[in-house]
């Protein structure tokens, strides 16, 4: 594999129509099997003080797809991401329950530290953007590469060893920055970028290692509408050039627009899976999302526009519930402390 492009993978559906056709034959049920999964997850749970943040029995992600992971606030989407990428550790199974197991490209990632997960080709971004603001945009990009042996202490002080590689990586970074319209900013500190530009930078940085799969945690949050369109383009372009995409998103319009498959989480569990058009009409999803009194298609723009205020109000209720839960949890911890536990 060269630095700048992937080899053609015969197993990858570069043709999107072909991919969608394959997915069309898949049962639209939570945990359904996919014809060519790149990622399979089994029995993964994570509890925070009695509340199960994640409790997923089975999930497969189709290679070459853009899969959206949606769900209301507090559904456990980000925790799920953290578990898969080694940033959090699943609970040990209790009382005969199955051990957590997840495989990426046939390789088990159980008890694999976060940096090793990234090295297997599964790279993630964060909900709260982690652009390194005190470094330049270019330095951010160069950090994303996994090819620079000058990062080894033993070679670092002898610059002739790594200088050649640095040029290659820099060229790759410039090409990506150009694609993400950030090339002019390459010598600016990342801290001076707008929120949306930071999201782009984080995505571009993750792509420096040519990952087989990229996991985007709310790529659209805080991005201004002018940038949204190009971001959508980038994501589809990624898929077309051989990177499977799994992303968490709130914006239903976007989910419907670009994803091949949608997975819905609520209260830590998978409640539905399916093609975007169908899943939005699934009663379980509507119930999970907006409460049972809603009966409209979530993907319908009218809902998003007209019922926006309602949705916001609903979210506030959810937020308040989450806060209550946190407070109750805090109280329980303190009580235990009080008992001298």
């Amino acid at each position: 594999m060269t630095d700048n492009q992937k080899l053609i993978d015969p197993d990858y559906d570069y043709d999107r129509a072909e991919l969608r056709k394959k997915l069309g034959a898949v049962d639209e049920l939570p945990g359904s099997a996919k014809p060519n999964p790149i990622l399979t997850v089994d029995s993964i749970t994570r509890r925070f003080g009695g509340i199960a943040a994640v409790d997923v029995d089975h999930l497969e992600v189709q290679k070459g797809s853009i899969t959206a992971l949606i769900g209301p606030n507090g559904a456990g989407k980000t925790t799920f991401f953290n578990l898969l990428t080694g940033f959090d550790i699943p609970d040990k199974p209790q009382g005969g329950a199955a051990k957590p197991r997840w495989e990426f490209q046939g390789r088990s990632l159980v008890s694999t530290s976060a940096y090793k997960v990234a090295r297997t080709g599964m790279v993630r971004t964060f909900q709260l953007t982690k652009a390194l603001s005190a470094m330049t945009v270019m330095d951010n990009m160069l950090l994303g590469s996994q090819q620079q042996t000058g990062e080894l202490l033993s070679r670092s002080a002898i610059w002739p060893i790594w200088r050649g590689k640095e040029k290659v990586i820099r060229a790759q970074a410039e090409e990506l920055l150009d694609r993400f319209k950030l090339l002019e900013k390459k010598d600016d500190y990342a801290g001076s970028l707008s929120g949306g530009q930071r999201k782009l930078l984080e995505m571009a940085r993750a792509l420096m290692s040519n990952p087989a799969m990229i996991m985007l945690d709310e790529p659209m949050a805080g991005v201004n509408p002018a940038l949204t369109q190009s971001l959508l383009g980038h994501i589809q372009n990624l898929r077309d050039t051989g990177t499977t995409v799994l992303f968490v998103e709130h914006d239903m319009h976007m989910v419907r627009f670009i994803s091949d498959w949608v997975v819905v989480m609520a209260e830590g569990k998978l409640v539905a899976e399916g093609r975007p058009g169908n899943v939005m009409q699934n009663q379980a999803v509507i119930d999970a999302y907006l409460g049972s009194h809603h009966d409209q298609d979530l993907g319908d723009d009218a809902v998003l526009n007209e019922d926006f205020d309602t949705a916001i109000a609903e979210e506030d209720v959810e937020l308040a519930k989450a806060e209550e839960a946190v407070e109750a949890y805090a109280e329980s911890v303190r009580e235990k402390e009080g008992d001298g536990d």
């Binding site: 940033f87 940096y115 971004t125 982690k130 390194l132 005190a134 470094m135 950090l143 993750a206």
Partner: peptide, 16 residues
């Protein structure tokens, strides 16, 4: 320098 700022970010890029 990356670690100084945000070690999780650097970890997510495959650095130990």
């Amino acid at each position: 320098r990356g670690i100084r700022e945000d070690e999780d970010a650097v970890r997510s890029l495959g650095k130990n």
